[in-house]
Amino acid sequence: MVLAFKNETFRDDFTFSNSPAAIRRFPFPFVEDKYMYSVNIEPHELGPKGSVYEFPIDIDEHYVSEMRDRALVLDADPGRCQALPHMITAQWDMLELLMTSMARDYPEHFSLTRDGNQWHWINRPLGIDHKFTFGDVATLPYQPMEYIGRQCQGDFSIQDQRDGQLWMDAGIITTQADWSLDFDVGMNFFEWHAPVPLAHQAGVFDRALKFLLNMQHGRPVRRLNWTMTINSRLDTSPENYHKWGIDRTTVTPENVGDKVHLRVELQALWRLPRSNAILFSIRCYMIKMRELATVPKWGRRLPRVLRTLPDEIADYKGLTRYRQTTIDWLSKYDDGAPTSLGGGPD
């Protein structure tokens, strides 16, 4: 598949938008008319052609512009990419997983030739043609995680496994929904999830951790998470809260359709073979309310979900200030008809 990459921005003038095809493939996360936390983990198996699950690593029309935005974030704040020294093997594991997936599934755009440890990587959309020695950091311009992370959509964290725990000991995080790698690096699974409301009491994290510790190589899993973002800003980090927090006060009945975005994270987890670490990818998809409402089922369902969302979750996700305005705007698309189970369009 040859992708036509858009030239758009995720800051300042916010020219981001989705093509009709991108809207149809949006991973709408609500399978029914309400939402509550659950251990919603399923095998990360290949999905229907054209869907975001078609390949393990999804590259789409926003690729080139997203990579440009990532470079801007990293230049301004190198702390968004950090790895503790013992994670170097895991970094190489990650580079191998991403390069082999991208070259296999998007041969028009990427290619990888391997002769033992001598690797030749070509990234046509970004104009990169590079020969390097796998395992030798000196042959790359960055450490392996940063090198491939600057060329792949989605944030990535790598968890070391020890003492029956997972430890977030590396990551490249520039498109986050208000959490900080700099704050979380070195924390364990319970520590970095500590701010999440309700789920701890429900035992969600105990069960999820037990499941993850036994994850096997070759059997990745995935889940969807979601929040909402004002303007198409990828970098909603705590570090830059002063730049975007105030945007939440700018939503009016007139601008909901263009300003309010549903932000969905396709989160996948892979056991890495050489390091026994776990790679966590957080692939962010955004859709404007105006775009979302073009799919009748989603236009009906989203106001119902937002209306019944527990206040603690709305607060945690930062929706409180503009939740009602958004529900009011969306309600004209909800004719009260029943919706089918599952998240996809009818």
Binding site: L84, H86, M87, D160, R162, D163, N214, Q216, H217
Partner: peptide, 13 residues
């Protein structure tokens, strides 16, 4: 055989 599974990894730190 199954795929490799590691329940006895060295502590990298």
């Amino acid at each position: 055989i199954s795929e490799p599974l590691n329940l006895f990894p060295p502590a990298k730190i």
